[in-house]
Design a protein around this nucleic acid. Structure first.
Length: 380
DNA sequence: CATTCGTGGTC
DNA sequence: TGACCAAGAAT
């Protein structure tokens, strides 16, 4: 009967949090107002989605240095924001964040969203992030159920919840709303952040430190011994995909690069061409045949660059690469002509690229490439 | 509701 | 060393 579940007195949790809270850069409080900058909370909550605090901190510092406030972010070009996001993953977060910043910046100051319900409509702000910004910035009594909070509540109540299950998340939100109402003297923002901190510091996924936990006496899963296995893991397996990357390289060092479509996997990022399966001799010959008529006295030198595995949450790339150095003895090949001669090849790319350009190392350095390619690009 | 979205740390 | 998983959202 989950309808009769109650959360315990938050006193021990708040006492523990007062002494154990980490000094994180997005927790800085304005000494005059005693409040946090909602913009800084917003940026941190977007970066922290499915990302550990330790990984976020350097990105957060650089981002806030470049874009200290809403207007500076709203004025930024998307390529620049993606470059700052390079390596952090889930790049739709960066695109949505920029779109939301532009939308909010266009509003009069007194019309900007300050409640969880109004924040929820912005791109990139879902139920958790809306509640987190509203509670941490404005102390609204809004639930903010992330993976930490779900895990803590799941164990406190010894429930068979599955990680990422939306029904369990809504259930947790209902319990939290009753919790805030039952303890009106406690700050909802403080309660939310203390729960998150408990999940991140003690109530860890596979090895909870129950001996140090302020909720140990109240925890049902600790009594039952099921805490380490809760919440239940979701069943999902990455789908394997073998890819080969021919790295078209001109004598001067320019590399043929493609910009991926603006949405979807690695949306808006740059890459080199991919072919499904192996880059066998027949395919190498076909590529040379397409190039040859347009390069006087051209020489083609293939060089294998090895391979490595890159695992996404739903996809597993087995990615190999070979460089193809193109050099002409008389005149250097015209990059535009080469691109045109490769059009039939490039049209087979999946997904079809937005743009194909020959980029020098310095130019590539200004653009965002997925981490899966960093190793190969570094070898050129 | 299920799937699609990255990357790096941890054990 | 490979499986697990993190301050979730969009579709």
């Amino acid at each position: 009967m989950t309808s009769t579940l109650r959360l315990p007195d938050p006193g021990p949790l708040l006492d523990w949090f007062a002494g154990a809270a980490r000094d994180l850069p997005w927790r800085t409080v304005d000494p005059l107002t005693g409040r946090r900058d909602p913009y800084r909370v917003w940026i941190s909550e977007i970066m922290l989605q499915q990302t550990r605090a330790a990984a976020v901190i350097p990105y957060y510092e650089r981002f806030l240095e470049r874009y200290p406030d809403l207007d500076s972010l709203a004025a930024a070009p998307e390529d620049e924001v993606l470059k700052l996001w390079e390596g952090l993953g889930y790049y739709s977060r960066a695109r949505n964040l920029l779109a939301a910043a532009r939308r909010v910046a266009a509003l009069p100051a007194d019309a900007r969203p300050r409640t969880a319900a109004s924040l929820r409509g912005l791109p990139g702000i879902g139920p958790y992030t809306a509640g987190a910004i509203a509670s941490l910035s404005y102390d609204e009594a809004a639930p903010a159920v992330d993976g930490n909070v779900l895990r803590v509540l799941c164990r406190l109540l010894d429930q068979d919840w599955q990680r990422g299950d939306s029904a369990a998340r809504r259930h947790a939100e209902t319990l939290l709303a009753a919790w805030y109402a039952a303890y009106p003297a406690a700050s909802p923002g403080r309660l939310n952040e203390a729960l998150i901190e408990l999940g991140a510091r003690l109530c860890l996924p596979r090895r909870p430190f129950c001996g140090d936990c302020p909720f140990a006496a109240a925890c049902a899963a600790r009594r039952s011994g099921r805490a380490p296995g809760l919440p239940l893991p979701p069943a999902r397996r990455p789908r394997p995909l073998e890819l080969m990357a021919p790295l078209f390289l001109l004598h001067g060092g320019a590399l043929l690069c493609l910009r991926r479509p603006p949405a979807g996997l690695l949306g808006g990022l740059w890459q080199v061409p991919f072919v499904d399966g192996l880059l066998h001799p027949g395919r190498r010959a076909a590529i040379e045949a397409a190039l040859e008529p347009h390069c006087a006295d051209a020489r083609f030198i293939w060089q294998p660059l090895g391979s490595h595995r890159h695992v996404f949450s739903h996809l597993e790339w087995e990615l190999g690469a070979e460089s193809l150095t193109i050099s002409g003895s008389s005149a250097s090949p015209d990059p535009a002509v080469l691109t045109a001669s490769l059009e039939a090849f490039l049209s087979t790319q999946s997904p079809p690229p937005d743009t194909a350009l020959w980029l020098t190392a310095a130019e590539r350095h200004e653009l965002a490439f997925p981490a899966a390619l960093h190793g190969f690009l570094a070898r050129l």
